[in-house]
Every structure is written in C-alpha cells, then in structure tokens.
Amino acid sequence: MDKTQNNRAWFMVLPVLIVVAFSAVIPLMTVVNYSVQDTFGNNEFFWAGLDWFDDTIHSERMHDSLFRQAIFSAIILAIEVPLGIFIALNMPKRGFWSSLCLVLMALPLLIPFNVVGTIWQIFGRVDIGLLGHTLAALGIDYNYTNDPLDAWITVIVMDVWHWTSLVALLAYAGLQSIPQAYYQAAKIDQASRWSVFRYIELPKMAGVLMIAILLRFMDSFMIYTEPFVVTGGGPGNSTTFLSVDLAKMATGQFDLGPAAAYSILYYLVILLVSWAFYTVMTNLDRAEGGK
C-alpha cells in the first residue's frame, strides 16, 4: 500500500523538542561547556580541549571510585533481587494481610533519602545507636567510622532495607497477574514447588524483574545521599562511590572542569551498562520466544 509522505508532520514534534531542550539538553550543555574549558578564576574561561577527559579517564581516583561503585551495585543487586522475589512469594495473596504487607513494604520507599541516612547513622552508632550499642554489648567489634568493612556492611544493609521493597512490590505485581489456572494445572501435573517457581512464576515475573533490576542498578550506581550522610565516604575513601567523589570534586574542591568531564563519563557509563543490560535481556527474551 502506498502511503503519502508528508515531512511537515515533523513540526508536530516541535513542542516536545523545545520542552526537552529546556529541561534536559541545555542544562546538560552547560556541563559539556565546563568540561572543555579551564579557568583561573575571575570568571575567565579558556579552551582546554579534551584534556579533562583524558585526565579523568587515566585518573586512579576515578578508577577506584568506579571499582567501588561496581562492587557496591553488584552486591546490592545480588541481595535485593533474590530477597525481593523471596518476600513476594511469601506475601499473602489477598485480604487484609496482603494490604497490610503492601503498606508496610512501601514505608521505607517513602522515607526521604537523607532521613534514611540519618536513621542509619544514628542506629549504627556505638555510643547511642540501638544497633551499634547492641552489637558492642554482644562483644562484637563494630564501628562503621573506623572499620572499612563495617562501613561497607552498614551501607549495604541500609540500601537493602531501603530498596528491597521496590523489588518485592514489583515481583508481587508480577505474581498477582498469574491466573489461578496455572497453579491448578501445575498441581494436576504434579509439579514440584521448584518447578512451579521455575516454569510458571519466574517466566511471568521476568518482565517486571527486568525493570526492577534496571531501576535498582541505575539508582544504586548513582547513590549519593545515604553513604554521604552515614559515612561521608569514609573511613578514608573506602565508601567513596562515584557520586560522592564527584560531589567532593565539584562542590568541595570547585574543580568544575574535571568534575564536568567526570560527570559526563559517569553518565556514559550508566547509559552504556543499562543499554547493554537491556539489549541482552530483550535478546534473551526473543531467543526464548522461539523463532
């Protein structure tokens, strides 16, 4: 069938382009602008080319932060996704208790990030915090302010506490969409609990889980407030993740040029990983779909 081509239709997209330009592109361009310039103060800037990018790519500081960041995201994904699925599987399916569970699960998600940080900062303190004090009383040597391992554990447990609900709620929504007949058929086929999970529940949850993993990856990769409030990136640099590092550089040292280059590279890393993840998942999905 012949379709008439009318390129004037592109004008219809113009309003969106303008809005996006003001909301995203122009602010982003100021960062790009900083990233290719240097200054000695007095609001005088001069062209620096790709020097900042070159510096940042080869900077050990960036490498270390990136490495810590990757480890952090990997650990919290490895904990939150299975744990979230497990919780969703064990939540009541309907009735009063299911509503109660949903509300309780949603609570951590509603707490502002810096409040979460403050809660855990106090909770973990050895002198007045319930957790820190209890651990100390039990004779466990725990102090997140001087021990890097303790600091890591605290930050990870905090993130798990804060965000597992998101995975659980998404997985729960996926489970709720499975018609009862599937479970009945599985009973009739004498499927084991594992088979029910592997062949019915997991495939039906795959879509929402992919979104959950993607969201958790992006969020954890950009985590700033909570570790900043709890550990301030310490002890030493042990919990200095990418955005903590970036903020130190930009607002602490006021190195706008390197910080701008840093943030652009940071952004590209997130984009690249998300894209790769999404592509792999959708390809797997298609491969599973037969032809």
């Binding site: 007949a181 058929a185 062949y199 019915i200 495939p203 599973e288």
Partner: peptide, 10 residues
C-alpha cells in the same frame, strides 16, 4: 482448562 495453560519457556 478453558484458557490455554502452557509452560511458556518450555
């Protein structure tokens, strides 16, 4: 059952 119940990934 009334509506097809198959194990999609198999």
């Amino acid at each position: 059952f009334q509506f097809p119940v198959v194990y999609d990934t198999m």
